[in-house]
């Protein structure tokens, strides 16, 4: 019984890891997994319900929904990983430098971070994409990263402030180690655990944000993003509910899985956090 309980306790972790693995796998191998090319239209067979040759049905142009979702996984994975990667690089670097150097640099950076964190990020993204002509996946990543890095920087800075006076850092400094080396070798590795936890949740919220932007018609152009599929599907939802149902489920399950994984990572990596 206790064994079963133990296994059940780990169920969310496995489910989360599976969802993330599935997303990456489908994104990488979309052309082989998708049963039809994404742009193959078949106007005779439009709005077909799920089943038979088209497992998840077809859209208003007769394109296969499952195939579109497979290619949509690429957009989600790229935006999720790209945004978080960019935010992490900028945030960790600036946060570590700011916390370690202190002084005027710290003062200025902290004010900038105050402003960025006070600003609703998705709103700035809406603004930026709205004025970009033909936004690409890259523009969406940039727009979401513009405010996204601030959270990482503040997190890292706080950690570095407490690490800065620890004996091993003081020792390195007193032996004449260069600042850049101390930041790279001593500070950054020691602050990575909470950053990784935050990054995991960051991937989920970037995917949700991209889907939201695409739903508003402000997503990357020329690709089948889940949010855009949902937007198109919602127009037909009284006649063919499946068009809106499946992209939404894809978003829901992906975000749910990543969040579950994040919870598990937090319990593992961040001993200070209350487990509730």
């Amino acid at each position: 019984m206790s064994r079963l309980r133990h296994a059940l306790g780990h169920l969310p972790v496995y489910a989360g890891a599976f969802a993330v693995f599935a997303l990456v796998f489908v994104a990488l191998f979309a052309p082989w997994i998708a049963p039809y090319p994404p742009d193959q239209l078949n106007l005779v067979n439009d709005l077909a319900p799920p089943g038979g040759a088209h497992w998840l049905g077809t859209d208003e142009n007769g394109a296969d929904v499952l195939s579109a979702l497979c290619y949509g996984a690429r957009v989600a994975a790229l935006v999720g990983l790209g945004t978080v990667g960019l935010c992490m690089v900028i945030g960790v670097t600036l946060g570590a430098v700011s916390g370690y150097l202190g002084g005027l640099v710290d003062e200025v950076l902290m004010r900038i971070i105050d402003v960025l964190m006070a600003f609703p990020g998705i709103l700035l993204a809406i603004l930026l994409i709205a004025i970009t002509r033909e936004p690409s996946i890259g523009s969406v990543i940039l727009a979401l990263s513009l405010t996204g890095w601030a959270g990482y920087a503040r997190l890292v800075r706080g950690q570095v402030l407490s690490l800065r006076e620890r004996p091993f850092v003081v020792a390195a400094r007193s032996m004449g180690a260069p600042t850049g080396w101390i930041i790279r070798k001593h500070l950054v590795p020691n602050v990575l655990a909470p950053v990784i936890v935050q990054a995991t949740f960051g991937i989920a919220s970037a995917i949700l944000a991209e889907a939201g932007l695409s739903f508003l018609g402000l997503g990357p152009e020329g690709v089948s993003s889940w949010g855009a599929l949902l937007d198109q599907g919602a127009r037909y939802f009284l006649v063919s509910g499946h068009l809106a149902l499946f992209p939404g489920l894809a978003i829901l399950l992906t975000v749910l899985g990543i969040n579950l994984l994040g919870d598990a990572l937090r319990d593992r990596l961040d001993p200070h956090h209350d487990r509730g």
């Binding site: 989920a204 949700l208 889907a211 939201g212 739903f215 949010g227 949902l230 937007d231 919602a234 939802f237 809106a244 992209p247 939404g248 978003i251 829901l252 399950l253 975000v255 749910l256 969040n259 579950l260």
Partner: peptide, 13 residues
């Protein structure tokens, strides 16, 4: 968990 993950633009319709 579901509440946080569900996109509003899907829940609405």
């Amino acid at each position: 968990l579901l509440g946080v993950a569900v996109p509003a633009f899907w829940l609405g319709p």
